[in-house]
C-alpha cells in the first residue's frame, strides 16, 4: 500500500516537473491509439456489412412444369431439410407474372398465349453462406426431381466475396502498419521519458535505491499513461461518433469488456516499452 502510494507520488512528481514532455508523450500516444480505435470500428463495420449482404442471399429454385401441384409439399419438405434454410416462400406462376409486371410494366407479357414463367420456391437462410456453400447446395438441388434450375446471383456474390478478400488483405496491411506505428511511438516516447530521467536514475542508483525506486515506478508510469491514453481515445471516439450519423450503414463498436481488455493490453505494451526504454540505463 505504502509502495503503491510512493509509485503514484513519483509518477505525479515527474509529470508535474516535466509537464510539456509528459503531456506531449501522452497526446502522441492517445492520437496513435485513436487510429487503432478507428481501424477497429472500420473493420467491424465493414465486416458487419459484408455479413449482412451474404446473409441476405436468396436462392430461387425453379420447378418443372411437369410436376403436379400435389407433389409441391414433398419438394418443399426436401428443400426445408437443407442446412441453413430458415424459410421458404412459394411463388406460383401467377405470382411470378405479377412480380415481373410490377417490375417491367403490365405489358411485358402481352402477345404470349400463356404464362411462360415457372413456379418456384425462394429459400431464405439464417446464417452466412459463402460461395462454396451455395455452389454445393445448388448442385444438390439440381439433382432433386422436379427442379428445373437454381438461381442465387452467383456473379454478384462472387464480387462481394472478392471485395471482402481484398478488404481483408488491405486490413491486415493497414493493421500491421498501425501496430508498427503504435509500438514505435511507445518505444520512442518511453525512450524520451527515460532520457529525461536518466540523471535522476543515476543519482538514485548512487544512493543505493532498489528497483522499487527506479524500475517499478517507471514501469507503472508506462502502463498508466498507455492505459489512460487508450481509454481516453475511446471516450473521444464515442463522442465523435455521437456527433455524426450515417444512414447507409451502422457503425459497429467493440463491446465494453473488449475495450477494457484492449486498454489493459495497451497498458502492458506501454509497460514493456518503458522497460525497453529504461533497460539500457539500468545496465549502464
Amino acid at each position: 500500500m505504502i509502495r503503491a502510494g510512493r509509485f503514484l507520488r513519483q509518477i505525479s512528481r515527474h509529470m508535474r516537473r516535466e509537464k510539456r514532455l509528459s503531456l506531449g508523450s501522452f497526446l502522441v500516444l492517445a492520437i496513435v491509439l485513436v487510429l487503432v480505435d478507428l481501424f477497429w470500428i472500420a473493420s467491424g463495420t465493414i465486416n458487419n456489412e459484408y455479413r449482412k449482404l451474404l446473409t441476405n442471399v436468396r436462392m430461387e429454385v425453379f420447378l418443372s412444369d411437369t410436376i403436379p401441384d400435389s407433389v409441391l409439399t414433398v419438394v418443399k419438405d426436401a428443400l426445408a431439410s437443407f442446412e441453413g434454410v430458415s424459410s421458404i416462400d412459394y411463388i406460383s406462376k401467377d405470382e411470378a407474372a405479377r412480380q415481373l409486371q410490377s417490375q417491367f410494366g403490365s405489358g411485358i407479357l402481352d402477345g404470349l398465349d400463356e404464362n411462360p414463367l415457372p413456379r418456384s420456391f425462394v429459400l431464405h437462410f439464417n446464417h452466412l453462406l459463402h460461395l462454396g456453400d451455395l455452389d454445393a447446395m445448388e448442385s444438390r438441388l439440381q439433382r432433386l426431381e422436379g427442379v428445373d434450375g437454381v438461381e442465387f446471383g452467383r456473379p454478384w456474390i462472387q464480387k462481394i466475396e472478392h471485395s471482402g478478400k481484398l478488404l481483408r488483405r488491405i486490413g491486415i496491411i493497414v493493421g500491421t502498419l498501425i501496430l508498427f506505428v503504435v509500438l514505435l511511438t511507445m518505444a520512442n516516447t518511453n525512450r524520451l521519458t527515460a532520457r529525461s530521467k536518466s540523471r535522476d536514475f543515476f543519482q538514485l542508483k548512487l544512493l543505493g535505491a532498489g528497483p522499487s525506486y527506479v524500475l517499478y515506478p517507471f514501469l507503472a508510469e508506462g502502463f498508466l499513461s498507455a492505459f489512460i491514453a487508450a481509454a481516453l481515445g475511446w471516450v473521444l471516439v464515442y463522442y465523435l461518433a455521437d456527433q455524426v450519423s450515417f444512414t447507409t450503414f451502422v457503425l459497429v463498436f467493440p463491446n465494453i469488456p473488449d475495450i477494457v481488455i484492449y486498454s489493459l493490453v495497451a497498458g502492458l505494451t506501454g509497460m514493456i516499452g518503458a522497460y525497453l526504454g529504461i533497460r539500457r540505463l539500468l545496465i549502464s
Partner: peptide, 21 residues
C-alpha cells in the same frame, strides 16, 4: 552493492540532487 552505496553520502562531483524533488 546497494547496501554499500547506502553507506555513502556524496557531496559534489557525480553526486547531485534529484531535479523532480
Amino acid at each position: 552493492l546497494r547496501e554499500m552505496r547506502r553507506r555513502i553520502g556524496g557531496v559534489g562531483g557525480i553526486y547531485s540532487l534529484l531535479t523532480d524533488r
